[in-house]
């Protein structure tokens, strides 16, 4: 009796282990391209969709005078993406916001800055890094880099471990410490709202690019923000980069930010 119960438990234990362990191993072996799943289906894209090898942005900060000039840009983004406005600073969600030079570029702090720059608000958001540390850190591929260089979030796969937030050297990511929906003034039905417990950030308006529109912040910026393909020598961003000296945030870390600032 006793020994048969013992051997039954052994078999049951081993099979439970087997099914638990073998599945991910098999998945791992099946995944050739480094992506967990291998969908063979063809993805149909909108003909009008904007395409690029590496999307990038140039911000001409000379065209900004004060906070007032940035407001409409931030609002445009937060409105269409259902970003809640939570007063408690600890629980704040921000996709794009403003920082003083010394916070946006803490490694380039200067004692004597030109007066114009010292208190000029700088727009900061996800840098859409060429070599994103957040993507390296994510244990579920909920954050991933697309072929066009955009670093995206799958809100439905995110387990909320916040490893990506520790990994991001730009503080570009926000976590939903509570249900964000009651804090959205006017919900845009065309874009998903998020639930509590997941991380979110700027998505370079991938949902707009997919239907042939430029990012909302660029549209609202009166030409201060310029968007284009970094790999295309004829693109607007490359033209600006040819003609102006630009800086990027924390360049020394090797993350390869795709956001360039003309100061």
């Amino acid at each position: 009796m006793k020994s048969s119960r013992r051997s039954f438990l052994k078999v049951a234990g081993v099979s439970a282990l087997g099914t638990g362990l073998l599945k991910p191993v098999a998945d791992l072996l099946a995944a050739s391209g480094g992506h967990g799943e291998a969908p063979a289906e063809k993805v149909y894209k909108n003909e009008k969709a904007l395409k690029a090898k590496q999307w990038a942005m140039v911000i001409d900060t000379r065209k900004f005078g004060s906070e007032k000039d940035l407001r409409p840009i931030i609002e445009a983004c937060h409105k269409i993406h259902n970003v809640p406005s939570i007063d408690n600073k600890r629980h704040e969600i921000k996709w794009i916001w403003e920082e003083e030079f010394k916070h946006a570029f803490p490694d380039q702090e200067l004692r004597f800055l030109p007066e114009r720059i010292e208190h000029l608000p700088f727009l900061v958001f996800c840098n859409q890094c060429e070599n994103p540390p957040c993507v390296r850190a994510c244990p579920t591929k909920a954050t991933f880099k697309r072929d066009d260089g955009i670093v995206l979030m799958d809100f439905h796969r995110c387990i909320g471990c916040r490893f990506c937030m520790a990994a991001c050297p730009y503080g570009s990511r926000s976590f939903n410490f509570r249900d964000p929906r009651p804090f959205i003034k006017e919900t845009n039905p065309k874009f998903p709202t998020r639930m509590k417990g997941v991380v979110e950030k700027c998505n370079f308006c991938e949902e707009r690019l997919a239907v042939g529109q430029i990012p909302a912040c660029v549209e609202a910026s009166n030409g201060a923000l310029v968007f284009g393909d970094l790999e295309d020598p004829e693109s607007d961003v490359r033209k600006l980069l040819r003609e102006n000296f630009t800086i990027r945030r924390k360049q020394a870390l090797g993350t390869g930010p795709a956001i360039y600032y003309i100061v």
């Binding site: 638990g20 599945k23 991910p24 998945d27 791992l28 967990g36 799943e37 994510c138 244990p139 579920t140 591929k141 909920a142 796969r157 995110c158 387990i159 909320g160 471990c161 916040r162 976590f175 939903n176 639930m195 509590k196 417990g197 997941v198 991380v199």
Partner: peptide, 15 residues
């Protein structure tokens, strides 16, 4: 974890 019920995603999408 923010979404503990999704914890098995770590096994479903091994990274």
């Amino acid at each position: 974890l923010g979404q503990p019920m999704r914890v098995l995603n770590v096994l479903l999408y091994p990274t």
